[in-house]
Amino acid sequence: MEFLESLSSIPFYVLSVITVLCSLGMILNPNLVRAGFTLIGAFASISGFYFLLSANFVAVSQVLIYAVGIVLVIVFAVMLCSLKDEASKLQEYVFASRSKTVFALVISALTFSLLSFVIQSQDWETITKLTGATKYASVIDMVDEKYTSQIGYLMLNKYLLPFELISILLLVVLVGVIILSKKNISK
């Protein structure tokens, strides 16, 4: 039984390793197009986490929006700005300067240690008990299949205003991007 329980944690660790390696590869790969494609691996494995957390709709949207849409747009933009003369000094492009790299390393390490300290110092079991998650733990499998319909229900009832605001935002972004990328705005 214990062996089976330890087996169920394998997907989490495998996905964690893939995600962390892919995001590090994105940062350290000097070739921008390859870095963009490495990002697909990170986003796809993050959608694997959503499947593990029984958030099926969010996982599918993650694949559709991030792993395909956003990465594709970024890679296309990178190809539009092909910087031929800078191919020789790509390495210098990745690492700004030694002092700045050390500074960035210190800052991000401090952030991580601070966040993990806060996470470790909380008593999460009590919190989940207080909010009644463990009480419903047996119900989760039943609710699981209804998550997608529940998201649709929430978006059109409780979160109708933010939903409509998002649509206005997307329209504004559409118009703004067209105006920005048009040549000869002044005419």
């Binding site: 962390v20 995001s23 590090l24 994105m26 940062i27 921008l32 870095a35 963009g36 970024i74 933009a77 990178v78 700005c81 492009y93 990745v94 690492f95 700004a96 700045k100 790299t101 500074f103 960035a104 390393l105 800052i107 991000s108 390490a109 952030t111 991580f112 966040l115």
Partner: peptide, 15 residues
């Protein structure tokens, strides 16, 4: 933290 690190070290705006 990895994202923050990349944000701080990269000089390329796409990255």
């Amino acid at each position: 933290s990895i994202g923050l690190f990349g944000l701080l070290i990269s000089r390329n705006a796409f990255r």
